[in-house]
């Protein structure tokens, strides 16, 4: 199934940094999905579908970080919003919401089941300046 609104980060760190930086710079409402787990694979296509919605002229995107080892370096590109970026554990998180100013606003725990309701909430929490 094609994920038209999803950017899958490469495993190579240098390439991932470049792709990640570029994704953050394109002024879209973003969520980042962590890992290659069952829940992540369930979340990705649902989130990709929800990313078709345009709100007040702002587009959405999904960034899929299948290799969570990349998080240690990539997180420095993000700022503290409602949540502290250093407090995010990708092993315990299905996805996080990133605001238009690249701040972490919400985290969906792995204790939840990813579905259209939880992922819509993730996009809604990312829908801020």
């Amino acid at each position: 199934m094609a994920l038209d609104n999803t950017i899958i980060l490469p495993d190579n760190e240098a390439e991932a940094i470049a792709v990640f930086s570029s994704a953050l710079a394109n002024d879209k409402i973003s969520i980042i999905i962590f890992g290659d787990t069952e829940k992540a694979n369930l979340a990705a296509p649902l989130a990709d579908n929800l990313a078709k919605t345009i709100t007040a002229g702002f587009h959405r995107q999904v960034i899929w970080m299948k290799n969570i080892a990349l998080w240690a370096n990539l997180k420095s590109h993000l700022g503290n919003g409602t949540l502290d970026v250093n407090a995010i554990d990708p092993n315990q998180t299905i996805c996080i919401s990133i605001s238009l100013s690249n701040k972490v606003e919400y985290a969906l725990s792995t204790s939840k089941t990813p579905d259209n309701i939880t992922l819509t909430l993730a996009f809604i929490n990312a829908s801020k300046a």
């Binding site: 709100t55 007040a56 702002f58 238009l100 969906l108 939840k112 309701i117 939880t118 819509t120 909430l121 809604i124 929490n125 829908s127 801020k128 300046a129």
Partner: peptide, 19 residues
């Protein structure tokens, strides 16, 4: 951006409860 705030205000409370 203000419209995004209104959108969030309208949608978030119920979805937070449901999640």
């Amino acid at each position: 951006l203000k419209a995004l705030d209104n959108f969030r205000d309208g949608m978030a409370p119920l979805l937070i409860y449901l999640v």
